[in-house]
Nucleic acid binder design. Sequence first.
RNA 1: CGGAGCGUAGCGCAGUCUGGUAGCGCACUACACUGGGGGUGUAGGGGUCGUGGGUUCAAAUCCCGCCGCUCCGACCA
Length: 448
Amino acid sequence: MRLSRAFIPTLKETPSEAQIVSHRLMLRAGLVRQHTAGIYNWLPMGARVLKNIEQIVREEQNDAGAQEIIMPTIQSGELWKESGRYDDYGPEMLRIKDRHDRDMLYGPTHEEVVTDIFRNNVLSYKDLPMNLYQIHWKFRDEVRPRFGVMRGREFLMKDAYSFDLTFEAAKHSYNQMFVAYLRTFARMGLKAIPMKADPGPIGGDMSHEFIVLAETGESAVYCHSAFLEKPIPLVVDYNSDLQEFVDIWTRDYAATDEEHDQAISKELGDKMIEARGIEVGHIFYFGQKYSDPMGAKVAGPDGEMVTPYMGSYGIGVSRLVGAIVEACHDDYGIIWPDTVAPYRVGLINLKVGAEETDKVCDKLYKDFSEGGLSALYDDRNERAGVKFSNMDLLGMPWQVIVGPKGLKNGTVELKRRATGERQELSLESVMSKLTAHHNAEKQSGAGG
RNA sequence: CGGAGCGUAGCGCAGUCUGGUAGCGCACUACACUGGGGGUGUAGGGGUCGUGGGUUCAAAUCCCGCCGCUCCGACCA
């Protein structure tokens, strides 16, 4: 994309409503604009990041054996009366009447709908286990939306729902999602720590929140320093027993503010990390809570009808954009991890209109796109300083700077946004270096 | 939902107390100079002052209603 043609409205000054750094930077870098309280427009840069994140989530869900579906945003109230939640859910649920005066609602979550799909279409234990997910917009009429997209009312969420014949099998489904989540967040360059969450009325220990550590996180969190060193599984056989791996990630202490035990802090001493965190995922097992009242049953091996055991697994996709900015920025702007960056490369032409620089930039721009490296080409007739600070604000992980000085020696400059490290390289080495990095990342599946 | 505050050009703000021609900086347009970290100058364009009513010769300014947004608390992917 040529910057001269791109719709990227940047701001020098921060709009007064933005309090936290991710919100400020997302507005300043032109990712989003607020439509109304807690509801956002996603402009081209924001939309690209959102799509990248969505795709990583999708790939990892598919790898883990989940199948993508799309459920409606507007739901019938009748299903919620069956599960009993129509009365329980409260004003957070946006309720609507259609023209026939029927009770409808904008879905805040989809347990009822997915259970309805299941009971109407799945008849035999042979179809289990089954895990269905979607990546779709939800609406929860929060009392007080804030922090930009981190606590919006409308938000993009990946929600998966598993169905199993037995508790043991359900536990395996839970573990599959657990591992998939570790991989998903790692691929985005995030350190996400699973913390035991309030298990709710079902009890047990099968509920975890995945928390990204960030200075400006919304809540205080506590965890053992061992979490910073734990391995992310690069290659996973999701059919194998994952319990051992899950145990590694759950044996050390980690708790959110509400669950925290101050005594353990003392016990762990300097091994205890006290930090701020952002919840980006939440998985839980809830057994027959919905399948039972809604009458979802399959025929078991012996012909008896069995009510399946369920779990649900959420990732806040739009929230992740904010969380990544919270975790990856400096005084100059955003520092996108390679895997989610709106463009991989920011190409800066320092002297637009000069034959040499124009020619080299055109060639690089073409080579990047042919090599599968998305590039944002700053071809505007602006001063160098404007382009540098603008590209730093936008946060492309690599910058390729083409100016008359370097070209005299046949070189261009490659800058790593995260470290500020700069190298003078020939055109060929720039291409090969970026391509090599890109390929290495694809192979490992966990770049960043 | 309790408490507090704010709505004036795309963004940041002044003007409101004490009523009298709607301003400043950035951004935007044009031209010139400049040209490796948000440069300089000149000339421009853009606002029914959130909205409805009231008081007044006269309302951004005073009074009343409504709408919207933000912040602090209790709640949440």
